[in-house]
Simulated scan of single mutants.
Amino acid sequence: MPRFKVYVSDYDYPDLDIERSILEPIGAEVIGLQCKTGENLAELAADADVILQQYAKIYRDTIEKLKSCKAICRYGTGVDIVDVQAAYDHGMIVTNVPDYSIEEVGDHSITMGFMLLRRIPMYTQATREGHWHWSASGGSIFRFRASRWGIIGLGRIAQNISRKLAVFGFEVVAYDPYVSASLMKTHGVQKVELDELFSSSDVVNVMCPCTPETHHIVNAEAFEMMKETSVLINCARGKCVDNAALYNALVEGKIASAGLDDTEEEPAKRQDWKPEDNPLFSLNNCFITPHSAYVSVQALEECRHVAAENAKAILLGKAPLDPVYP
């Protein structure tokens, strides 16, 4: 009989070999589920000692039914899909993996921004249609040096972005009510108010966590303030951007283009998603990747190792490396 039972709520990895290599030596059985939505998770994992969570939503109604569970260990950084307060109310620990994809998400954001500032997809489409001229992108192209890159949220990933952008000569500004102007200055970033960021930036780069405060932080009012030549990049949570307002802004030419790593409906967390659900997928000036900004071979391996090590520590009665508190 195993000493512990660790359920993986859902996963899109090819196997659970990494998790088993860490947890089986301490007597844990690792059981993989595919409960992507979180529905019926409490019944499927009723005897769980720990749950490793990828996309499943684990809220209070589920947590209340998990009588023997000691912890919910997230694969990834965000904890918006787990009720952290409810977990602690029921004696559970919540952990995440905060540092594994700082480079990847930063690089993905910059890559999207550079691609759209240089209007490379538009040029590519034009040449395929037989148009061979410098004006064939259909829009204005500006020099990187002295262009303004505005970042909403100056956490670790955004700090990484700002350091890399300095090499190209961008003026980097940021809005973050929780980071002081003096700390921003140490990263070569100027602190500005949100309205100024929207109205003056050539790139608006969303890098904040998804909270009630930041839900739809980029909305119709924001698009009214933005430059017609500006680019929106969102490699944070999809719900930080009002997708209906973004669609209208792109169709009406209020901004030039957008690059997203997730849409508001978050397809990875749905069983029955199809692109027709969101009209942004029909636009030729909106470019969407499948929530893959965090991906590299190294990042995926690190994420799985750290999540499993957090679970191992808790099962052995030790403090995990990456606790998250309400």
Rank of each mutant, 00 (worst) to 15 (best):
F168S: 15
F287W: 12
Y175K: 07
L250W: 03
S135F: 08
Q159C: 13
S257H: 08
A28N: 01
G130Y: 07
D202F: 05
V241T: 06
E29D: 13
S296W: 08
I161W: 02
T289Q: 12
Y325H: 15
V306M: 12
L52N: 03
S109R: 03
V218E: 04
E193W: 12
C208Q: 09
P279V: 02
K164L: 11
S292H: 12
S292T: 13
V179A: 13
G259T: 07
D262A: 15
R304F: 05
I255H: 01
A311W: 04
W273Q: 13
A28Q: 06
C240F: 05
V251I: 10
N96G: 11
G155P: 01
V241I: 11
A42R: 02
T77P: 00
G91N: 04
M226A: 09
E43V: 14
P212A: 14
V94Y: 03
Y75H: 02
R60Q: 14
G150C: 04
K67P: 00
L250Y: 04
N243W: 02
D107R: 12
E228L: 01
V50A: 06
V218F: 08
I120V: 15
T77R: 09
F287Q: 00
I157E: 05
C35Q: 06
K254M: 05
V295R: 03
A299V: 10
H216R: 14
K312C: 12
I152H: 06
A45H: 04
